[in-house]
């Protein structure tokens, strides 16, 4: 999802055009301008109508219906049955699928945030900035198919990860085959792939902290640890929060990496909500339950989005 947190530039209505013809001609100019404006907007509006609003309505309809997927006339409304089936006792949707989703998102945030804070504070004011940025950005421009398969291969018994463990005298780990290690192993890859952009945001945040703050604190006798805790971290809070929320939202929705690496297995050990939706729909043709699952996940995403908007607003009032 494109994030909606981008710092908004102040809204400014365009000024009335200076030198616009006055009187009768002006009204005709207005009319023409309206026509031109809607012509310019037509492709986008048409797209939103056919591929955004229509699908949204269709998905809502499907989530409260039973349908075989062939004849549009045969959609059978069943009320909240699909949601009830998802949340019923014995359904795997809440546990482990939705809990996996939350663990996956939380784990990714924790790892990526820790890693990016460490690297960003170290890389700040170091030489060769451009080189580091290029290197840390490589995973971001690489297709998930490559990232997933390379890591899957590295996790294999004869792969790089176990090669390193063996070289250190440790035993091999069945990273993706063991239900206990599968989810953490996938989390590591997701965090690895998102490190670059997190570092980018945090480095920008660090640059905006005036050097004089640090110098003043150092003059007052504060050690580097104190400066980091008392000055850097508090002033970095908006950037940290931003990284947290966007990573969390991305983590809740992403399933491409898991599709490539484990397909949710072993068992349901790495199955997440979006993948469950995909499988219900395209493996089982259960369009109704799949659409209901999509809306449950959407509700979770929406709650997080709204909570974050409130937090940001409060943070903005503090500042």
């Amino acid at each position: 999802m494109v994030n909606v947190l981008t710092p908004r530039s102040p809204e400014r209505a365009p000024d009335p055009l200076p030198g616009a013809p006055a009187g009768h001609g002006r009204r005709r100019g207005r009319h023409r301008e309206t026509v031109v404006a809607y012509l310019f907007l037509a492709p986008a509006l048409l797209f939103f109508a056919v591929f955004l609003l229509l699908p949204l309505g269709f998905a809502l309809l499907l989530s409260v219906s039973r349908w075989t997927g062939f004849d549009l006339g045969a959609i059978e409304p069943v009320g909240p049955d699909n949601f009830a089936a998802l949340l019923a006792d014995g359904s795997t949707f809440l546990v482990p699928v939705l809990t996996n989703t939350l663990l996956f998102a939380l784990g990714t945030v924790a790892l990526a945030l820790t890693g990016s804070v460490v690297v960003a504070t170290c890389v700040d004011r170091l030489r060769f900035q451009g080189l580091w940025r290029t290197l840390y950005f490589l995973p971001i421009v690489t297709t998930v198919v490559a990232v997933g398969n390379v890591w899957k291969y590295m996790y294999e018994p004869g792969g790089l990860a176990n090669g390193v463990l063996n070289a250190l005298g440790l035993g091999s780990v069945a990273f993706l085959q063991d239900p206990d290690t599968a989810l953490p192993s996938v989390v590591v890859v997701q965090a690895w792939a998102s490190l670059g952009s997190a570092i980018l945001v945090l480095t920008a945040g660090l640059k905006s902290i005036p050097a004089s703050y640090h110098e003043a604190a150092a003059l007052d006798g504060a050690g580097p640890g104190t400066v980091f805790r008392r000055i850097t971290l508090p002033l970095l809070r908006p950037s940290l929060l931003f990284v947290c929320v966007t990573q969390f939202l991305t983590g809740l929705q992403s399933f491409a990496l898991i599709t490539v690496m484990t397909r949710g297995g072993p068992g349901d050990a790495t199955n997440v909500a979006a993948l469950e939706m995909y499988r219900l729909a395209f493996d089982h043709g259960d369009w109704g339950t799949a659409s209901a699952a999509a809306f449950v996940l959407f509700a979770v995403v929406l709650v997080v989005t709204l909570a974050q908007l409130r937090v940001f607003r409060r943070a903005g009032e503090d500042a």
Binding site: F58, A59, Q253, F255, A290, A294
Partner: peptide, 14 residues
């Protein structure tokens, strides 16, 4: 505001 996964099924069916 709408995440892409929400549209996967209906867009395909459309």
């Amino acid at each position: 505001m709408f995440p892409p996964f929400l549209f996967l099924i209906p867009r395909f069916l459309i």
